[in-house]
Write a protein that binds this DNA or RNA. Structure first.
Lengths: 107, 107
DNA sequence: TGCATAATTGGTAGAATAGCCAAATAGTTG
DNA sequence: CAACTATTTGGCTATTCTACCAATTATGCA
């Protein structure tokens, strides 16, 4: 694998890694329904606010969300909605896995 | 967040985590062009065969690839091609990030 | 059966990640 | 300006991930 190709997959992995955590997936899902401030997300997630803030920072660095400060609050919004299309495929994988599992235990 | 919702995002994260590594993304990309045996992938990747095998095992457990033994070799193939659609979106994010970066440094 | 090849599994050291607390920063209000 | 609120950052520990080597398993062939 040449250097250029390597860089390409590293860049992709960087974005995908940003999504690879339940809390961050929850945040993306929530933001798909509109912008939220950090305190709203903290209440929904139920973790320390510093933890939530760090998750948001990872999503922001990856370019998946954007933020805007208004007064004391920081509001986050989805920057690239196409991310959502992916979840359909992920659900397909999960469904297929469940199907295969059922098939495996039934024989 | 209730227990059911939590499980849902954990399941999704499990699949996405399986993709969140440059080598595994390379494998998925390579398999999108046809099935490959472990030794072919090892040659392309240039890592220890045990490392490649473990990456394949992660993809297989997630249900993203499937394997079939033929003689001495094990051949891997993509199980859910819809995964590929996602990379278009990931590239969009990367492009958007690059654009934003250019804009930021030019002012 | 004994040897060679392909792949997986077990073990381990080092790197990366996640979560919490405490401290710092930024904006608001009396 | 002091007190307060919302968020981020730094520091720390526990956990998870990754890559390699060595050992094991499975198959093919002389």
């Amino acid at each position: 694998m040449n250097e250029k190709k390597k860089k390409k997959f590293e860049a992709r992995a960087w974005i995908i890694k940003a999504l690879a955590h339940p809390t961050r997936l929850f945040i993306v899902d929530e933001l798909s329904r509109g912008e939220r401030c950090v305190c709203e997300l903290r209440d929904m997630i139920g973790a320390d606010i510093s933890t939530v803030s760090k998750h948001l920072s990872i999503l922001k660095q990856a370019g998946i969300v954007q933020d805007e400060k208004r007064g004391l609050q920081v509001w986050y919004a989805l920057r690239v909605p196409c991310i959502l299309n992916f979840f359909g495929c992920v659900e397909d994988v999960l469904k297929e896995n469940a199907r295969q599992y059922q098939w495996a235990v039934s024989r």
